[in-house]
Nucleic acid binder design. Structure first.
Lengths: 199, 199
DNA sequence: CACGCTATTGGCACCGGTGGTCATAACGAC
DNA sequence: GTCGTTATGACCACCGGTGCCAATAGCGTG
């Protein structure tokens, strides 16, 4: 879980590998043989490390494609906190989601490969639900903060679920058409929803 | 998968059990020892069949709590089809979701037990994502039909995701407060969302 | 009533992911 | 060099899931 620690000075035996090395080896194998077709033994061998050691870097095989998601969540939290407070709440959250999905050009291919793997593999789709729950909690907390409600109240959780819904709809569309911008699709999904509900 | 077949005349050897019997035994054990703490051997023993046989009634352990979900999906489809065509689309879908979540008083305790298990068990939360995808597809198809779009277009998938989002937010709230009506919570979530987005 | 037909059962072997334990290796500090 | 610390990797056991196949139990027929 803890990403490759950028410890000031290491105390004991140094790690035999790193998250980056594992992910690189793993993604290579996944691309070659598919996710299910790649065993942990394969990955361990490719990394040059014991199979048991992999579990000290990732909680499970399913966690490997998600990488260091906790960091990503911190980013999202920071983005939401930095939205202009004078914006209507819905728009603040929405812009946060959009910004969260803006990737610099060079990060895009890697991100796309990752998401294709995740969204195209049933085991991983299922596993993602747990990650999404953490993501929703972040938006729900933001909404609860601004409205002085509890994060478990109906409105904050609803906004959390709906924000995720828009992002996932955008991802679905992005999978169909890589040429579109992800952030643009999130925006379009929101416009579609508002129009849909406005009648 | 196929629910206990109501075959007109059986040809070969009769089944040794039924979906109902398996679910009953399984839910009993889950309540007693938890989902993870119950092995398939336990269930098989309780039902009085071989472990191997369980897999002919349910694809996996995770599928047992969901029961006959395909039937439920058919219900949902029928409910959507029977909504008044003069209603604005968003409202038709919304009412469909609300009706789908109205349970007759006597079905409620069982349904609640089932959903508590599902929503409270990480493995099952994850597995549910696959079920939700089928559910979303039903609403997306309905929207696509009425708008003469493809079910994979952005608006239909968005509506599918958002409808599910509202239902799940309602379930979250229902878990916190069993005294509320589920359908009422779906309705309240939708009202909250419309207000939220209207500013 | 015996016979064959047929669908279901259930045992068995096997794979892969996951978790526990423990001896051991490699480093920094003293 | 010794000690404390930390990560490693081997061994083991468990469980879910799958392919294979022989055994089985009703049914309809002759």
């Amino acid at each position: 879980m803890t990403t490759t620690p950028a410890r000031p000075r290491a105390a004991g035996r140094p790690g035999a590998t790193s998250h980056a090395a594992i992910e690189q080896a793993a993604f290579g194998l996944f691309a070659e043989r598919g996710f299910a077709g790649t065993t942990l033994d394969d990955i361990a061998a490719a990394v040059g490390v014991g199979r048991r050691t992999l579990f000290r870097y990732y909680r499970s095989k399913n966690d490997i494609p998600w990488g260091q998601f906790d960091r990503t969540l911190d980013d999202f939290r920071r983005i939401l906190e930095s939205t202009a407070p004078e914006l209507p709440l819905w728009e603040a959250v929405h812009r946060g989601v959009v910004r969260f999905n803006e990737f610099p050009g060079d990060a895009r291919p890697g991100h796309r490969e990752r998401m294709e793997l995740i969204l195209g593999t049933p085991e991983l789709q299922a596993h993602s639900a747990l990650r999404y729950a953490e993501w929703r909690a972040v938006s729900a907390e933001h909404v609860a903060d601004r409205l002085r409600l509890s994060p478990t109240d109906l409105l904050p959780t609803t906004v959390g679920h709906v924000s995720l819904a828009l992002a996932l709809a955008a991802y679905d569309a992005w999978m169909d058409d890589p040429s579109r911008s992800l952030a643009g699709l999130v925006d379009e999904a929101m416009r579609g929803l508002r129009t849909h509900l406005a009648s």
